[in-house]
Amino acid sequence: MDIKRKGSLEIWTMILSFIVLVFTMLGVCLHIGFVHKIDLAAFNWFDRMFEEPAMNYSGGWFNDIMTIVASYGDVLTFVLLSIAGAIILIVKRYYLLSLWILATVGFGGILGVILKAVFHRSRPYDHLLVDTGFSFPSGHSLSSTLIAMILLSVVMPKFSNKALRFTAYVMIAVLWGSILFSRLYFHAHFLTDVLGGTALGILWVLGMKYIGHLITPFLQKLPLLKKSKIYTLCTK
């Protein structure tokens, strides 16, 4: 994909994510009947298909997979991965990229917590006891999307080996999709919670890419960051 097409795709992705985020926020805030019907239809479908699965390793291979991704695809895991990645980048002297990742994941997570407190939405009535806190937006969905989007839009495009790059894309997409699916499978969230968290994560990462691209020249002038290797965030 050429630079111009990639830039255009990111812009349209941001626009679509913004529309989805606003749609879910208004639906939750204003208790719009149409949005409630969507949530109810999705909830009933999962209930009919999987009933009320327990998060353990005694419900078959599919339940085992869902349990794994739900247990380890949480906010803490992605925060630790972000910190570990940032440390590796600091060692390799990519100081600006390290700061960008920490800021993107950190502030994105904080924004999610603020929105949960603002919307104050209760979880589905039969959610697992391990799932606590408010429901909108989904924390698992937001945090996994932040990391997935950083990998897909910032890290993976730099891979020169096409086969390796394609394999990585598929693995990340499958893991990401599995985490999102698990939130509905275990009745941890409504569909709009997952859509809202995902849209917020996509919009946040792509927005932070452009912000990082704009402020990098100024940050390079700071004494502590002058020796930082430059990692291009945007293709424009």
Rank of each mutant, 00 (worst) to 15 (best):
I211Y: 06
K226V: 08
S160E: 14
I68G: 02
D193M: 10
L222T: 09
A199T: 07
G207N: 03
E51C: 08
C234G: 04
G33F: 08
V118S: 07
G106K: 00
A173D: 01
I15K: 04
T145Y: 02
D193T: 11
I179P: 01
P223M: 04
E10Y: 14
A54H: 12
I87C: 04
I87M: 09
M171N: 05
T77I: 03
Y95D: 05
L26G: 11
S141K: 08
T13V: 05
G59Q: 09
G73F: 04
S228Q: 06
Y72S: 06
I19H: 09
G7K: 06
T77A: 11
T192M: 06
M49K: 13
P53F: 10
T167I: 11
D131R: 09
F50N: 11
G212M: 01
V75C: 08
K92I: 05
H187Y: 08
T67Y: 06
I150G: 01
L99K: 09
K209P: 02
M208D: 03
G85P: 03
H36R: 14
K4M: 09
A199E: 00
L175N: 05
G139Y: 08
K6Q: 07
D2K: 05
I215K: 07
V91H: 10
I101N: 04
E10M: 10
H213K: 12
W204G: 00
F62C: 06
G207W: 03
L115V: 13
V20I: 15
M66T: 09
L224T: 10
G108F: 02
H127S: 13
S71F: 05
F34T: 13
S182I: 09
L80A: 12
G197W: 06
V22N: 00
I101L: 15
